[in-house]
């Protein structure tokens, strides 16, 4: 147990925060759902039914997709784009996927390198991009889940108001889908951009997300 905590405290703390926030969201969302039902003279629902509703699923997936888009883009764009002075960026002149020597792949792999780093061809390509592929797949998967739960929710709403159904493609073109998508994206882009820029001049002693307190403002790609 001690080793579990010592080796994984960051992942465990975030997991605990995630579960607590999700439970809080579910309870608050359930109350809000039933308040709305009351106003519209509809029956309230049990908590368990709310957990498996499109309404709750849509609210959860909407936020998941934007977070994973943020990390997908950050991983991808930092390969080529530079912010001088940022610990999040590579140094100017180093943009690109770098040499096999720098990346320790193929014949430059070391004894302790992952097995697929020593290979060539498709498997090396997959492993070389595996973080991006995983985050990108999670982004697209959760965005798809947002779209189908949103469509289901939207259809139920239209049905209740005696309006005609919309098909899935029709929902993808709806103002509601794009408002809920873009309101999340804009905040992620601002937060990531500001993190890259603020960390040029500001510091957090002890954090690997920051440069060392005494590092010069001009130092790029230096983590504390």
């Amino acid at each position: 147990m001690r080793a579990l905590w010592r080796d994984n405290s960051l992942a465990l703390v975030f997991l605990t925060f995630f579960v607590a926030a999700l439970v809080g969201q579910a309870i608050a969302g359930w109350h809000e759902y039933n308040n709305e039902a009351l106003v519209h003279h509809k029956a309230s629902i049990e908590f368990g039914r709310y957990l498996v509703s499109s309404s709750f699923g849509n609210a959860v997936m909407e936020n998941w997709q934007s977070e994973y888009l943020q990390f997908t883009l950050y991983i991808l764009l930092t390969v080529w784009f530079i912010q001088r002075g940022s610990p999040e960026s590579k140094e100017p002149g180093k943009s690109g996927t770098e040499s096999d020597l720098d990346q320790r792949v193929g014949e430059h792999a070391r004894a302790d390198s992952p097995r697929w780093a020593r290979l060539r061809g498709v498997r090396l390509w997959i492993y070389s991009n595996s973080l991006l592929l995983a985050m990108g797949a999670i982004w697209l998967g959760s965005w798809f889940a947002q779209s189908v739960t949103g469509w289901s929710d939207y259809s139920a709403d239209r049905l209740a108001h005696g309006e005609p159904r919309v098909d899935y493609v029709g929902y993808l073109g709806s103002a509601q889908f794009w408002e809920s998508t873009l309101q999340n994206w804009q905040s992620e882009f601002l937060a990531v951009g500001s993190m890259a820029v603020l960390a040029v001049y500001l510091r957090q002693r002890g954090s690997p997300e920051s440069k060392p307190v005494g590092a010069p403002h001009s130092a790029t790609g230096v983590e504390g």
């Binding site: 080796d7 994984n8 498996v52 509703s53 499109s54 999670i138 998967g141 189908v148 289901s152 139920a156």
Partner: peptide, 30 residues
């Protein structure tokens, strides 16, 4: 590294499970 791998798998299961579950909810509820 055994516990690190277990945490890695746990995170993946939560993510893949959550997405799969709510895809199914969205696709079956209308």
């Amino acid at each position: 590294m055994g516990s690190v791998r277990a945490i890695f798998v746990l995170y993946l299961l939560i993510i893949v499970g959550g997405i799969t579950f709510y895809c199914a909810v969205g696709l079956t509820h209308h």
